[in-house]
Measured scan of single mutants.
Amino acid sequence: MTYRVRIENADGEVVTIEISADELREKGLTLEELLPPNARIVEVEEVEP
């Protein structure tokens, strides 16, 4: 499974990243732990691999 994640950074700019569930598991991280300081998740969407 892959996630498309929209993130708002500290400057108010919204960027989109895609990350797979396998990648998260391998790194032992959650989506929140990948965020840079002062950023927030705006939207998470599951996409087909």
Rank of each mutant, 00 (worst) to 15 (best):
T16H: 05
M1T: 10
E48I: 14
L35N: 01
I17E: 01
A10V: 10
E8V: 14
A21G: 09
T2W: 15
Y3E: 00
Y3P: 01
A10F: 11
M1L: 14
I7L: 08
E32D: 08
N9L: 15
G28S: 05
V5L: 07
I7Y: 15
S20D: 08
P36I: 03
A21K: 08
E48V: 14
L35F: 06
E18F: 15
E13T: 15
L35G: 01
N9Q: 13
I17C: 13
Y3C: 05
E23L: 13
E8W: 13
E13C: 12
I7A: 03
G12C: 04
I19T: 02
I19G: 00
T16S: 06
T2R: 15
A10L: 11
T16N: 04
E46F: 14
I17V: 09
M1S: 06
E48W: 15
T2F: 15
A39G: 07
E13F: 12
E48R: 15
E45I: 15
V5Y: 05
D22A: 14
L24A: 02
I41H: 03
N38K: 05
D22W: 15
T16P: 01
A10N: 08
E43M: 12
P36E: 07
D22G: 09
N38E: 07
I19Q: 00
A39V: 14
R4N: 03
G12L: 03
Y3R: 01
L31E: 00
I41W: 05
E32V: 10
K27L: 10
P36F: 04
E13Y: 11
L34Y: 14
A21W: 12
G12M: 03
S20A: 09
E23S: 08
V44C: 08
A21M: 09
P36M: 04
A39F: 15
V5C: 06
V15R: 08
Y3M: 06
E48S: 13
G12Y: 03
L31V: 05
A10S: 11
M1K: 14
A21S: 10
E45Q: 12
D22E: 12
E23Q: 07
N38C: 08
V44P: 01
V42F: 05
P36G: 12
L31F: 07
T16C: 10
R6P: 00
E33V: 04
P36R: 03
E33D: 15
N9E: 05
E13Q: 13
M1P: 08
V44H: 02
R40W: 14
E18I: 15
I7D: 00
A21V: 09
R6D: 02
S20G: 07
L31P: 01
V44Q: 02
